[in-house]
Computed example of a mutant assay.
Amino acid sequence: MQDLILHHYPTSPFSEKIRLILGYKQLAWKSVIIPSIMPKPDVLALTGGYRKTPFLQVGADIYCDTALICDVLERRQPSPTLYPTHSKGVARVLAQWADTTLFWAAMAYNLSPRGAAAMFAGAPPEVAKAFAADRGAMSTGMTRLRPGDATAAYKSYLRRLANMLESQPFLLGEAPTVADFAAYHPLWFSRVRNAVMGDILNATPAVLAWMDRLAALGHGSFDKIDSGDAIAVAAASQPLALGDEPFQDEHGIALGSRVSIAAETFGTEPTEGELVAATRMHYTLRRTDERAGTVHVHFPRIGYVLRALDAA
């Protein structure tokens, strides 16, 4: 069985979501630390354009977006499950809310003037400017909450999470689901990455206790490798055979077409390639890179836009 290779960096909140799931499932993995801002030449050699963090590599297969990565890890190690039968639908819906609405409220709060000053305290001014320019380029056209509005929303969301934890240890019952890991990581950023902003959590002690339970799961066992090694793994591998899930055509774009896939909002840099799968839940592109060789790059359907490229 090929190694799980997570491309991430330590302070990435979405990476913490996946690191904890790896710990929950007690999976061994390889760690590749990538830059937090562009340029990311080794990332693009594998993804072809996608530059958000993290992404998961299994040989010559590249899985983008943590929603899809969660499904890949579930297939690799079905127990303990992220999607209990009795709450599978609500767990996915709650996770999607946490990865979007909760995340953006939390980050607008975390990166308010006070939070940004604390994050970059002691760093040269150009570091903060480079980070702001990078994230600005990724969020072109997005509506961002102002700090006051974000703080009010964040407090409300924390109270709602606390309500869910009044009589049970995790959001949907006695064991964590994908929803717990999705709701945890924006709060982790407040508590751990930018601790000066963590006082907002003090009003919801049930949330803090829940965070402690999740943090205790750890990150599993991992070894560090560099990005060049990961690219060499892709070049020496062949993409896994595609499953027999039926083609689901929602766009009038045939398999074998040249297409681009990009996120709907944040980080909309496209990946181009040959469409080789479009199933109920994901897309797969085949692309070739001079360093990584032929790879399959996988995306979830939800949150991504598929477009045909002109034959010319």
Rank of each mutant, 00 (worst) to 15 (best):
W210P: 06
A241Q: 13
I200T: 07
A232D: 13
K224R: 12
A230H: 01
L242S: 09
L172S: 02
F181D: 04
P169M: 00
A236G: 04
S227T: 04
A179W: 01
V178W: 02
L208V: 14
L171G: 05
A182D: 03
L201M: 00
A175W: 01
S221H: 14
A234S: 07
I225W: 06
A182H: 05
A175E: 15
A209W: 02
N202F: 06
G218Y: 07
D244E: 14
G198F: 10
F222M: 09
N194W: 11
W210Q: 05
R193E: 15
P205I: 08
I200F: 01
G220E: 11
W210T: 07
F222W: 15
D223P: 04
P205K: 04
L240Y: 03
V233A: 02
Y184V: 00
L208Q: 14
S190M: 14
G198E: 02
A215E: 15
A203L: 02
P176I: 09
D180Y: 08
D199F: 05
A209P: 09
V178M: 12
T204H: 08
R213P: 10
P205G: 01
W210R: 02
R191G: 00
A215N: 07
M197S: 14
V178K: 03
Q238V: 15
R213T: 11
T177P: 05
M211W: 07
A236T: 02
N194F: 04
L240R: 15
N202L: 14
G198R: 00
A241W: 01
P239C: 10
L171F: 00
L242A: 03
L201I: 08
D226N: 15
G220F: 12
A209R: 14
L187S: 11
G218N: 12
D199N: 12
